[in-house]
Design a protein around this nucleic acid. Structure first.
Length: 755
DNA sequence: CCGATACGCATTTTT
DNA sequence: TGCGTATCGG
């Protein structure tokens, strides 16, 4: 049994798995079987007599944790269930909920997502009467996040001269005050943001050595995946937990460090070896994923970076074909080339759609490829965009849940105080906030004892506020008695959200209803699973603590089986596809003055490109467009400088891209489109309307009727469900075969009626 | 307090 | 260009 899986490893991998006498660092090149090493190592530890609850394995995504757990379960069965395996954030939140008391939180503390913390910062900036044009909430948020990632607390932040100087230089001297206020407000609300989960874990272990001892004692072996993506806070906690026992293995690849903007620090890998001087270093250099050409091309690119741990990744797979570079004239043509190539790969070489991925730098770049694929009726799925849990109706419902568990939660409170509308407006809310700030208490406390906190409001408002208080109090009562699923349904009904949304059946409302139903169904599944695992009562708080750390990257939606994947390079990390298209490789994708100013960023950009290429198993295609529309204007650009960093021997280039790229200084002549005939679109200019009845007059050439089938230039073929509005505001709701339901503003829509 | 219009701002983002 | 937020008027 034991030798059986060790045989499946190469020599390097086996060494890394078997060495467990002290700290170790595994540098795992792209596609070198990193996850395999981690899973086998854990299986090996279990076989060696470690108990699963004594092993802590930290990952960055829920998905990675889940996959690894499944793979281990295949090796060792039931015991895998008792491993401490999860994301940094989920493991630490679990610890923090158990140990919440000493750091002054309740076990039910709320986790603010970034929208919550941004909204809190916004109101703090407003209250401090600072200009939000200067103190941009997003910027303030990222500065605070950076500080937290470096474990700099408000006091240290305020007293640090160099930080203050840099804030003054950035014209934001009040940063330290905002930070302190933000920090206090979160505590007031019994809430932590994502960074706090790390910060407070660190504080907890630092201030209470006995608690640190408890966990350091429990975790006989600690493993960390994707170590190159850890920030200083995560790195420090790993040290707190392992410095005594020194049984720790971190796995990562410095060449794939692409999250520095989130505080990830490539130096952590180097720091690790400095702090654990005796750490054994293992390098996994055999790539099992890609052809030799792809591996060599990727190597030649990354060799240009100066900050790296030297390694020579190699492949013993076939040589493979050169990486093909597509040199398109326009963005539309780029889309056409890619879509045609995909169709060809499927037709001539028998690849499945799920074997192909289109990777781009930013989500905004997806559109042109969507259109090209849709035009050819090629099925695709697109990652990114608004997550399920970010949708308005879901956030509303969850806010009620959050209040039921923690009424001090300020962001949830503000969100639903007047949703559904109950006549409590901004004026009243501001009075509440003022009173709360005056007395350093939460909004809920003010609401509970308005007189004690000197809230001056009229009788009607008072009654409305008390109505809201009673509503929430009822939920709190029920939260102790009912299980999550039951309570969820009750809250959706009693809060009035149901009424609000089931009022009319506009398409938006319909989809909201579906979303809320999906959420409630999800709660049902959650309760059922937990009950199977032996938990008798699954409380709302259990559900919330899980759901607030969930992103919908985690849930694979139905029907993703046979589809082309469109996603950003960042979210493609850890995945692999037979054929990969790396698109939109222009030089001036971003204004170079804003970003790309430091050498480090340049190197990271190269690593990003490296990650993109190494997703490919068999074919890799690179493409760029010399001209594209950006913000409605035509823009011209040269191919990315990083293209030139790849050794030409591995490229198949239509023109001289690699050695001397064509300089585009003048308008290039646009060639005739040969690849694809554009859909003939007729522009709607005038729409005649019948007064008072929101419909377009019939029969005229420009008229659009319910039931008609149209072909839209971007969305393809669809059926008209509804037409309303007048004049320039005339809108049509159309259900498209591939794009779903869309609202079209007829003034701008370009389509033709085909039936 | 809600709707309609006006303005301004556009990276990547595992948690 | 196209969306998300700010502001004004009913």
């Amino acid at each position: 049994m034991e030798s059986n899986y060790l045989d499946e490893l190469n020599e390097r991998q086996r060494e890394a798995v078997l060495y467990n006498d002290g700290p170790s660092l595994v540098i795992a090149g792209a596609g070198s079987g990193k996850t395999r090493v981690l899973t086998y190592k854990i299986a090996y530890l279990l076989a060696q007599g470690y108990d699963p609850w004594n092993i802590l394995a930290l990952t960055f995504t829920n998905k990675a944790a889940r996959e690894m757990k499944e793979r281990i379960a295949r090796q060792v069965g039931e015991r895998a269930r008792y491993l401490w395996m999860g994301t940094f954030h989920s493991i630490f939140s679990r610890i923090l909920r158990t140990e919440s008391q000493p750091i002054g939180f309740s076990p039910n503390f709320t986790i603010y997502d970034s929208a919550d913390s941004k909204s809190l910062l916004k109101s703090i900036i407003k209250e401090m009467q600072l200009d939000d044009k200067v103190y941009k909430p997003g910027m303030v948020q990222s500065r605070i996040s950076q500080a937290k990632n470096r474990l700099i607390l408000p006091d240290a932040y305020a007293s640090d001269g160099s930080i203050y100087r840099s804030d003054v230089e950035a014209k934001v001297p009040a940063m330290r005050d905002i930070y302190r206020r933000y920090w206090e407000r979160c505590r007031q609300s019994d809430a932590m943001d994502f960074d706090d989960l790390l910060v407070y874990t660190y504080i907890l272990f630092k201030s209470y050595p006995d608690i640190c001892q408890k966990y350091a004692g429990q975790f006989h072996y600690v493993l960390v995946d994707e170590y190159q993506d850890t920030n200083y806070a995560q790195h420090s906690i790993v040290l707190q937990l392992t410095s005594e026992r020194r049984r720790v293995c971190v796995v990562g690849d410095d060449a794939q460090s692409i999250y520095s903007f989130r505080g990830a620090n490539i130096d952590n890998i180097l720091k690790f070896t400095q702090l654990y001087k005796d750490a054994r270093l293992f390098k996994l250099e055999q790539n099992y994923r890609s052809t030799q050409t792809i591996v060599c091309a990727a190597n030649s690119l990354i060799a240009k970076n100066s900050e790296q741990i030297r390694k020579e990744v190699f492949s013993e797979k076939s040589v493979g074909e050169p990486i093909q570079v597509f040199n398109a004239y326009s963005d539309v043509e780029e889309g056409d080339i890619v879509a045609n190539k995909i169709a060809q790969l499927r037709r001539k070489e028998g690849y499945a759609y799920s074997d192909m991925a289109v990777l781009y730098r930013t989500n905004a770049q997806s559109r042109i490829f969507e259109e090209a694929l849709r035009k050819r009726a090629l099925p695709y799925k697109i990652y990114g965009g608004l997550s399920f849990y970010q949708r308005k109706e879901i956030k509303d419902v969850i806010s009620y849940f959050r209040l039921a568990v923690n009424p001090n939660d300020e962001e949830a409170f503000k969100r639903v105080l007047n949703y559904p509308a109950r006549g409590i407006g901004d004026t009243t809310l501001n009075k509440l906030i003022d009173a709360a700030n005056q007395n350093n208490v939460s909004l809920w406390k003010v609401l509970s004892e308005p007189l004690a906190f000197g809230l001056s409001i009229n009788k009607g408002t008072h009654a409305k506020l008390q109505g809201f208080r009673e509503l929430i109090e009822g939920f709190i009562q029920n939260a102790h008695e009912k299980d999550a699923y039951e309570l969820g349904g009750l809250i959706v009904r009693q809060s009035g959200i149901m009424n609000e949304i089931y009022q009319d059946r506009t398409p938006e409302n319909l989809s909201r209803q579906e979303n809320i139903e999906e959420l409630i169904n999800g709660m049902h599944d959650f309760c059922a699973t937990r009950q199977e695992e032996g938990n008798e009562h699954v409380m709302l708080t259990d559900y919330l603590s899980e759901v607030s750390l969930l992103t919908d990257q985690d849930s694979d939606k139905e029907g993703d089986a046979e589809k082309i994947t469109l996603m950003t390079i960042h979210s493609a990390k850890g995945l692999e596809f037979k054929n990969v298209f790396v698109v939109g490789l222009e030089e001036n994708l971003f204004p170079s003055s804003l970003s790309m100013n430091s050498y480090r960023e340049l190197e990271e950009e190269r690593r990003l490109f490296y990650v993109a290429i190494t997703r490919a198993e068999e074919h890799c295609y690179l493409s760029f467009a010399k001209s594209r529309f950006k913000y409605g204007k035509m823009e011209f650009s040269n191919p990315s400088r990083f293209l030139k960093d790849i050794d030409v021997r591995y490229l198949s280039v239509p023109q001289a891209v690699s050695s001397s790229s064509p300089q585009v200084n003048t308008m290039p002549e646009r060639p005739k489109m040969v690849v694809c005939q554009p859909v003939v679109a007729r522009k709607f200019t005038k729409v005649s309307t019948v007064a008072s009845r929101p419909a377009i007059s019939t029969a005229s050439v420009n008229g659009l009727q319910v039931g008609q089938v149209i072909e839209h230039e971007r969305f393809g073929i669809g059926e008209v469900l509804k037409v309303d509005g007048a004049g320039d505001n005339c809108k049509a709701t159309v259900k498209f075969r591939h794009a779903g339901e869309k609202q079209l503003l007829l003034k701008f829509a370009r389509f033709k009626v085909i039936g």
